[in-house]
Write a protein that binds this DNA or RNA. Structure first.
Length: 451
DNA sequence: TTTTGAGTTGTTCGA
DNA sequence: GTCGAACAACTCAAA
């Protein structure tokens, strides 16, 4: 009997279109393993952990129950497992995140000492980070030229189905208990992912360019949790997109994910620190009053309906509409003057689709600390954004029952209602016009000091 | 090396 | 209500 090879699942919880798995299967019988890494498990947040557990259960079913689940630091866990089953190689999909790269270096050297080879194949992206550069060989910092270059570079077609001989090891291999969560999780596994993908590809792509901006309707793909865990690979979706405007808009959203992965790959520190370092000098509000305002934001009680609706959706669903993510982020940073990293952490605690690169850089874009060139005076007005993208208040009424009875005219700014603000709904925590001015002043001080 | 055109998602003001 | 200009001038990418 040939020696088994280990396949280490990470952010690629699928069987279809799996080049790294195909490479493992080409060597013989495969032991599929997932390592519950304490360094990632704890910080993931209960919602994401719960979705991960379900995704692993689905994966295990598609492997006829052969998935091995081990606990502990990956280097130690994999070394022990390789020893016990006599595997000479460990295959995995390459990870480009700051922690993942460091972890894989360590795993590689620990395994090498036992004569076990770590082989990294493929990536969670259509185009692996680092493979596209500008004409002068530097990483792109602006999206549009990156997008052009990314499309010109192109990507592989999805792989045809390959046979895998899964090897079962003596267990028991228990998945961790699924954390009890209040949110309704998306259907897990490749079947659930493809049901969602087909629904979107069949009926959602056409109107995507316009409807993706309207939080009151189901206009987005809702595929982010699957992309996060690699239940779907982006090239599988790209393979179904034509040249229509909606398809191009969706392709560009997929590319944003890759652009930010590339930025983080180039600048691992930018997960937690300002990409534009001089912006770290921004004056921030801290202390009791700032904490009180942060709590109002986190609890959906700022008195600005679009902000509160978004935060309530985040806590209730573990997901927030993209347009509203920008609005609530802008409000925390520019109306409350609170550090973007605090908001980013809160998002990561709740999001089922929480992805470090996209989350950190989405926040940095809003905060004006990121790769964007001139976001100086770009401060979202929570009332005009609400009127523009949720004119009929469908989204607001769904999430804020206290104000559901208000007419369209005043629902976006309840304090303007002549009969008085509704009982049970708070007055605005700050005055947007005042805080907008304050933010511009603070930016101006940084700019002046820099000059 | 220098130059040139362009840059996710905005807001406000005044005509 | 709608529309264009100003915001303030910076950095990036490519020619």
């Amino acid at each position: 009997m040939s020696t088994p090879t280990l396949f280490w699942f990470r952010r690629d919880l699928r069987i279809a279109d799996q080049p790294a798995l195909a490479a493992a299967a080409a060597e013989g019988p495969v032991v599929g393993v997932f390592v519950i890494d304490p360094a990632l498990w704890g910080p993931a947040g209960a919602n994401r952990r719960a979705f991960l557990v379900r995704s692993l259960e689905a994966l295990d079913r598609s492997m006829h129950g052969s998935l091995v689940v081990v606990d502990g630091p990956p280097a130690k866990a994999l070394a022990e497992l390789a020893d016990s089953c006599g595997a000479g190689t460990v295959h995995a999909t390459e990870d480009f995140g700051p922690y993942g790269r460091q972890r894989d270096d360590e795993v590689r050297s620990v395994l090498a000492r036992r004569g076990v080879d770590l082989r990294l194949v493929d990536s969670p992206y259509a185009v692996p980070p680092g493979s596209i550069t500008t004409g002068s060989g530097t990483p792109y910092k602006v999206f549009t030229p990156f997008f052009r270059s990314w499309k010109a570079h192109g990507w592989a077609d999805p792989l045809p189905e390959i046979p895998v001989e899964w090897l079962e090891l003596d267990g028991p291999w228990a998945l961790p208990d699924q954390p009890p969560v209040a949110v309704q999780l998306p259907p897990a596994g490749e079947a659930g992912a493809w049901a969602a993908a087909e629904r979107f590809l069949d009926t959602g792509v056409d109107g995507y360019a316009a409807s993706r901006d309207l939080p009151g309707i189901e206009g987005t793909s809702r595929l982010s949790p699957y992309l996060k865990w690699g239940v779907l690979h982006p090239r599988q979706l790209l393979d179904h997109l034509d040249d229509s405007p909606g398809a191009e808009a969706f392709r560009s959203e997929l590319c944003w994910r890759e652009f930010y992965a590339q930025v983080l790959y180039d600048r691992p520190d930018s997960a937690r620190h300002a990409y534009v370092s001089r912006m770290a000098a921004m004056e921030l509000d801290e202390g009791e009053e700032a904490d009180r305002r942060f709590e109002a934001w986190a609890n959906g009680r700022t008195g600005y309906p679009i902000v509160d609706a978004g935060m309530r959706q985040l806590v209730a669903e573990g997901w927030m509409h993209n347009r509203v993510r920008m609005i609530v982020a802008s409000f925390l940073v520019k109306d409350l003057h609170i550090d973007w990293t605090r908001g980013a952490r809160f998002f990561m605690d709740h999001l089922v689709d929480g992805d470090l690169a996209s989350n950190s850089h989405g926040w940095q874009w809003v905060a004006g600390t990121g790769t964007d060139a001139s976001p100086y005076f770009r401060i979202f007005n929570p009332v005009s954004q609400s009127k523009k993208f949720d004119g009929e208040g469908r989204y607001l009424r769904r999430w804020i029952p206290e104000i559901a009875h208000l007419p369209d005219r005043s629902i976006h700014a309840p304090w303007t209602e002549r009969t008085g603000a509704p009982a049970g709904y708070p007055p605005p925590v700050v005055d947007h016009d005042v805080e907008r001015r304050e933010s511009l002043d603070r930016y101006e001080r940084i700019r002046r000091d820099w000059a």
